[in-house]
């Protein structure tokens, strides 16, 4: 079995198993903890609306904070949207997902995806530079932040290399690309990348609690 077959086959399967089991384990470990009953008189009972409201609303920073957070938010927006476009807009990815799940949708022209991929790499590099150079971020950063950054940027770079047929024989680069995706999937439940799921839970929790008090979010 060559490297590409290995990567696309058993390694990817194992990565998916780790991803699913790890995610379920971590979410269960949080959500199954007890929730104390709240006996206080609520100002509002629309707590689900409050949760949904904050999940959507916090996507855009408050006007009062816009200036101070503009750089970090812009970088964040570029690489999050960029990753989504590259993962779900690139035709070979759609075909690959179709082969696994049967689901498919129209793709974007490859040229656009390459440009977006390059922008994503640039934004991720900017995010790293900011993490290292900004005193606040440097202080609060830990190994998880740097490792998660590496496993996020690796599939984008190796994907661009494969698309450009650069850096070695195509099957080898493609195999490395698939392996980097496996690493990303396998790591996601264990570190900060889990925010892909936790963002909804954390925002929803605060949104619901604050709505109950009539406090502003």
């Amino acid at each position: 079995m060559d490297l590409l077959t290995l990567a696309r086959g058993p390694i990817l399967q194992w990565a998916l198993v780790i991803f699913v089991v790890g995610t379920v384990w971590r979410l269960a470990g949080i959500l199954l903890l007890r929730r104390k009953p709240d006996y206080t008189e609520p100002r509002s009972t629309h707590t689900w609306r409050g949760a949904a409201n904050l999940i959507v609303k916090r996507t855009v920073p408050k006007r009062e904070f816009a200036a101070q957070t503009a750089f970090g938010n812009t970088i964040g927006y570029v690489f999050h949207i960029g990753l989504a476009v590259v993962v779900f807009g690139f035709v070979p990815h759609i075909l690959f997902i179709k082969s696994l799940t049967g689901l498919s949708w129209p793709g974007l022209p490859s040229g656009i995806v390459y440009v977006v991929g390059a922008l994503t790499v640039a934004a991720l590099v900017a995010a790293l530079v900011r993490r290292i150079s900004n005193p606040v971020m440097r202080l609060i950063s830990n190994a998880d932040d740097y490792f998660s950054w590496a496993v996020t940027i690796a599939p984008v770079i190796t994907g661009l290399m494969a698309a450009a047929h650069w850096g070695g024989p195509y099957p080898t680069i493609l195999a490395i690309h698939v392996l980097s995706v496996c690493l990303l999937l396998a790591w996601l439940p264990f570190g900060k990348l889990m925010h892909a799921f936790l963002v909804f839970i954390a925002r929803g929790t605060t949104g619901a609690l604050f709505a109950r008090k009539g406090a502003s979010t």
Partner: peptide
């Protein structure tokens, strides 16, 4: 006193550092 709410918060920080900009002491 840890329950689901506090655990959710503890697990969710992405170390973006933005909270500093809201704090009068920082």
């Amino acid at each position: 006193d840890f329950g689901a709410v506090a655990a959710t918060y503890m697990e969710s920080c992405v170390h973006c550092g933005m909270c500093a900009e809201a704090c009068h002491f920082y």
